[in-house]
Design a protein around this nucleic acid. Structure first.
Ligand SMILES: [Zn+2]
Ligand SMILES: [Zn+2]
Ligand SMILES: [Zn+2]
Ligand SMILES: [Zn+2]
Lengths: 161, 161
DNA sequence: CTTGCTATGTTATAGTATTCCATATACGGG
DNA sequence: CCCGTATATGGAATACTATAACATAGCAAG
């Protein structure tokens, strides 16, 4: 057991399960879970925190993959499009999803001190926005919910400000 | 009456009221509502939609203010910090607040076709995130809630996709 | 007036993302 | 198997977003 995100869990099996799930999903949907795509997903699973496109690009380059921005952005677009990875707007960064292969509305808690990102569900938020949207005649397709604050570990250190 | 955002309202008086409120707030808090700050706020009030920092910078430059990025970013930072303006993370853009001088948790509905932005309240969302945050020991300081979808006007045009 | 703080302005640079074109690989029909 | 087509990868160039660092100007308290 190691601590990742803001709670502890068995990360080794967590990674293996999600890789398998992603592979299965791609097979089932005639999508190509290619080497770069797999590798980027692995990198994000290993880090278990938000990484910028250029962080990922640097690793790809070091491993012999393409070295130009589109390589990272295309791969991330694919992973985001199919729900394996989420983009964190506030950080211009990406995290592996903790609920692979299920459509959902994620919400994130972002520590402003250590940049740790924890994913949770935002379905309630969509529900609450619903009335306002209905009144305005606005058709919600996707929600971005990101809470900024201080994680328990950083707060324990009393670094808060 | 003209239609702005996603509902109709009297925009002329809306602008005047908010300018006056901002001016009053600055007086009360020993803040300087200087020419650039006032002008940027006016620009955002006039547009009543999200503008990027460089859009604003271009107008400032045309009017004889400074022409370099920091001019726009500093001014926007001031307006955001004091709640006159909100940043839309999803668009890297800024909109005038519709509830000046009151602390609040805004939520936004963003039309992906015309980029119109409507502000509403996100307090419920904070409430719904609360349980997850408490369980994780995460201290929420600010929330970003942005719904992406299609506004009534764009949907009426049947352009949706 | 002088001192210190705030605000404005500029240059330069850093960080993020997309457009466009070329090559390569996978896939299905013949 | 071969070919045509769609998809995937690689890269050059460029656009867009944002900050760091420094200089000058305005203002207010002492
Ligand atoms: Zn998820
Ligand atoms: Zn932290
Ligand atoms: Zn507001
Ligand atoms: Zn629209």
């Amino acid at each position: 057991m190691e601590s990742v995100g803001m709670t502890a869990h068995d990360h080794g099996s967590c990674k293996a399960e999600r890789l398998a799930a992603a592979h299965g999903f791609c097979d089932a949907h005639r999508l190509h879970f290619t080497a770069v795509r797999r590798r980027v997903f692995e990198i994000l699973l290993d880090e278990h925190k938000a990484l910028g496109a250029y962080d990922i690009l640097a690793r790809l380059k070091a491993e012999g993959f393409g070295s130009q921005p589109p390589v990272a952005y295309r791969t991330l677009d694919f992973l985001v499009k199919h729900g394996f990875v989420h983009r964190i707007e506030r950080l211009n960064a990406y995290v592996a999803c903790v609920h692979p292969c299920e459509t959902h509305d994620p919400a994130f808690m972002i520590c402003r001190l250590c940049n740790t990102v924890a994913e949770t569900s935002a379905l309630p938020s969509r529900g609450m926005l619903g009335p306002a949207a209905r009144e305005a005649g606005f058709e919600i397709e996707q929600t971005v919910v990101e809470a900024i604050g201080v994680c328990p570990s950083c707060r324990a250190e009393g670094v808060a400000g």
